[in-house]
Simulated scan of single mutants.
Amino acid sequence: MKIAFYGSSLLSSYWNGAATYYRGLLKALSQLGYEITFYEPDVYDRRSNRDIEAPDWCAVVVYEATRHALMQVAACAAEADIVVKASGVGFEDEALLRAVLDHARPDALVVFWDVDAPATLGQLRDEPDHPLHAALRQIDLVLTYGGGDPVVWAYRAMGAKECVPIYNGLDPETHHPVASQARFACDLAFLGNRLPDREARVEAFFLDPASRLQEQRFLLGGSGWGDKPLPANVSWLGHVGTSDHNAFNVTPKAVLNISRDSMAANGFSPATRVFEAAGAGACLITDAWLGVELFLKPGEEILIARDGGDVAEIMRTLTPNRAKAIGASALRRVRGEHTYAMRAAVTDAVLRRHFERGTEEAA
């Protein structure tokens, strides 16, 4: 079956936290026989900050950020059996959604794939006239980056016919243990772009513990932090490309995951970096969010911090041997239960069920 997938970017992770998710899932779906074309706009300087070239498992069309180019690629939806419009494409999202819906064949399966469901749902609650409200009546299926039952119930209440969470996972060919690198040596590292709904939590869970632990070294990776005042023991790296993620995760004694406000409030939304870090064998510390135990076992495969004080206490007492043991346990768990091949199998079953249902109704 042919999939036309309209998303932010497959080729670049620059200001694009969904890149790893798209790559892992679409690669695994291609291995199940899907023929995929990914359409991404040329925005946010991503073309000059590519992490990968176009892969052999997915065709990629990069289009200019103009209304004319948008309409041209939207017309390609007519060639697909499955048409996917992702959230957060980054250029004229509402116009793209309308155009894709207009061009999809009547017999095609139309999917809205939400990679930031808690934030999207919050916007829908605040904006009764948002175009997505009407579009949900035409969309056959909502898939989400995560969110668990709270997101499923909320989307159903908004009028979605069906909503299924497809969680982040691990591609063992991409994220795996490697040799450490001196440039990433530190006690605690955090990787994340500076975003309005994350910054206060980075201050609380990362910068405040750093100020309390002046004898330890902290490393901050991600875009946008250049003018942020930092404690003297915090070094900022700037953007860290995906080719460096394994070394970034495996070298420090521990790596910190900090959820965005909406993700933390909703729960059941592990970030891609949780599985990236675990796949490299990192000792991961995460801020507390509902459902973490469904993915990794607290205290044995991941460490939980309720606030910056907890982070500081964990780092005061965490020994290198315990950190290595936690990282090894997490690596075993994600390889055994949380790969993108497993996520793709769930996705495939959901997609095929819709086509089988359509065949039965047609008969």
Rank of each mutant, 00 (worst) to 15 (best):
C283E: 06
G299T: 01
A277D: 11
C283R: 00
C283H: 06
N321D: 12
A312C: 09
L318T: 05
A323Y: 03
G279V: 11
F295S: 07
H239L: 06
V311G: 10
N266R: 04
W289T: 06
G308V: 11
S243T: 12
T319F: 01
P252L: 05
F275H: 05
L296I: 03
T251A: 04
G238R: 08
G309Q: 12
L290Q: 12
A305S: 09
P252H: 05
G291I: 13
N257M: 11
I285Q: 10
D261R: 10
F275N: 08
T317L: 05
I314F: 11
K297Y: 04
F268P: 06
E300R: 15
V274W: 10
S243N: 07
G267I: 13
K297I: 09
K297N: 13
S259C: 13
H239E: 13
W289E: 10
E300A: 09
I285P: 11
V311D: 05
A280I: 09
M263N: 14
F248K: 04
G281Q: 02
G291C: 07
R316D: 01
G267T: 10
R260W: 00
F268L: 04
V240T: 10
L284M: 15
K297L: 13
F295C: 01
S262T: 15
E276F: 07
L284T: 11
L256P: 04
G241H: 08
I304K: 10
N266M: 08
R306G: 15
D310K: 10
A264E: 15
L303W: 12
N257E: 12
D244N: 14
T319I: 01
A265H: 13
V240Q: 02
L290G: 05
M315E: 09
E301H: 07
R316K: 14
H239W: 15
P270H: 04
A278H: 08
I302H: 07
G241Q: 13
F248M: 14
G238S: 06
A282R: 02
W289G: 01
A271P: 08
S243H: 12
A282E: 14
V311Y: 12
G291S: 06
T242A: 09
V311M: 00
T286V: 14
A254S: 08
S269D: 11
A265T: 15
V240S: 01
N321P: 02
I304V: 11
N246M: 05
H245F: 15
H239G: 02
I302T: 03
E293Y: 03
G238N: 04
E313A: 15
H239C: 01
K297R: 14
K253P: 03
P252E: 05
V250M: 02
I314M: 02
A277P: 00
A277M: 06
V274C: 02
E313R: 14
L318G: 07
E301Q: 13
F268S: 06
G308C: 07
V292R: 03
W289K: 04
L296M: 07
T317M: 05
T251E: 09
A277N: 04
D287K: 00
G309P: 01
N321Y: 02
A288S: 01
F248P: 01
S259N: 14
G279M: 12
S269V: 12
I285Y: 12
